[in-house]
Write a protein that binds this DNA or RNA. Structure first.
Lengths: 247, 247
DNA sequence: CGTCTAATTGAAGCATCTCAACATGCGTGG
DNA sequence: CCACGCATGTTGAGATGCTTCAATTAGACG
């Protein structure tokens, strides 16, 4: 339990530091936040479309996604979220959820009270800014996804998704610095890119043939990062990371 | 000049009131804001991708759009903005623009200082909330656009765009309550929906044949609102409007 | 009235989708 | 430890939605 709390704290700090400057005082204040951690089974929803958005939580472990359904049962994934991501900074001010949030892997999340967060933001202007930046970056990523889905062909579109996942993970300092591997079902990729699962399958084969990635089941490894970024037309500027994302 | 100032004020109030409650005191405080108005010629950029985002402005008159280019020169429009919209609540906290903003019609915008806005938000918690809601609704609209572009066919996709423009205009109390007409070039519709201009042309013909809309040049009129909403799979919930959008 | 932009049309090609079958891998219960 | 069942990945074939190119028409404006 204590370990989870400190892990939640560490991830949140890393996440915020990837996009904003935090003073030691800021970190101290963050560490006083009261958490309540909870495990979420894979494929379970943490927030449901239409429900009142009350609680505020950050991801401690695992990957989650926002998604929305369309008439006819098709699903569109709207964003991925990694450890340290604050899930509903944007939704807290709204009366109900306009989408759902699901655990793509088994997850740990830390819930904390809206008031505690509000007080924190009142007390520390720099933390306030960091959290606002976090929400602003989320919005920027949404915009890039509109572009990705609207104007890129299947191959660059999937490649772009992979580049983003890699860049954001790297920004958290989670990856081992060498080969980057992540897990994503072909139909999850399909839902995130607005393609059919079959076409994702074929496009992944192209990416493999071009030696940009390799896959084992639903586990994908980026082999040639610069090549993949070229294929994806990827420019990480929209992530608004503080550090140049060194390889 | 005075007229423009009060118009800017009126639009901002209407915009915020469409999504949040404002007290008389809030409105009073808003009315003390110092504006500087400026005319923007059609097709001119107010903000440019990559530039530092410093100023903060609201639209007084006209329609603007956010957009982004992709390798190969294709454009993707990310959102439309109507009078009263605050343009860069989200971008102020970021170091540079990750997209551009353009006047789709001749526009009037009111610039005001970032500090004045910050003070206002400090002084009034309810105005603070209203402006945060405004940004949150923007993000919600981005999410709906990802869904629209990713998972809807051309006809419902264009229909959805039209429904949104109508619903948001109606929420401002701008339309005359009867037939709703707006101006949008076919290639602008193409850029907003991720389609080609030619296909937009053909799809508009379908919409006309189905008696849902009529067009004269780049001017479109919604004839059958419920029918169009049905065709679009449109649910206005994601706009988070306070009022049920009465016809 | 010419000039320019935007809308329209036709034809051909390609990207992507759907359907349907089959293969592979993995976890679980026997 | 094996056998089964389920989820996922793979493949083929045919259909279609959308794009591109290129030519033509229609409007808007000085």
């Amino acid at each position: 339990m204590g370990a989870q709390l400190s892990q939640a704290y560490a991830h949140l700090v890393r996440q915020l530091e990837s996009i904003a400057f935090l003073s030691n005082d800021d970190k101290m204040q963050l560490s006083t936040l009261q958490f309540q951690t909870k495990s979420i089974a894979q494929r379970h929803d943490v927030m449901i479309h239409g429900a009142k958005s009350s609680s505020c939580c950050i991801i401690v472990k695992g990957v989650m996604c926002r998604y929305k359904m369309v008439r006819g049962g098709k699903r569109q994934i709207l964003s991925f979220h990694l450890p340290g991501d604050v899930l509903d900074l944007q939704c807290l001010d709204l009366d109900f959820m306009d989408h759902s949030i699901q655990a793509m892997t088994p997850c740990e999340v830390a819930f904390f009270s809206q008031q505690a967060l509000a007080e924190l933001m009142m007390n520390s202007p720099s933390l306030n800014l960091a959290l606002r930046r976090h929400a602003a970056v989320d919005a920027s990523i949404f915009r890039e996804w509109i572009l990705n889905v609207g104007r890129r062909d299947a191959l660059p579109r999937i490649a772009h998704l992979f580049c983003e996942v890699f860049a954001r993970t790297r920004a958290l300092g989670i990856d081992d610095g060498r080969r980057f591997t992540f897990s994503l079902t072909q139909s999850e990729i399909a839902d995130a890119t607005g393609l059919s699962a079959v076409h994702v399958n074929r496009t992944l084969q192209h990416l493999r043939k071009q030696q940009l990635i390799s896959s084992r089941g639903s586990s994908h490894t980026i082999i040639d990062t610069p090549g993949l970024e070229r294929a994806a037309d990827f420019d990480p500027a929209y992530l608004h990371l503080r550090m140049p994302q060194a390889a």
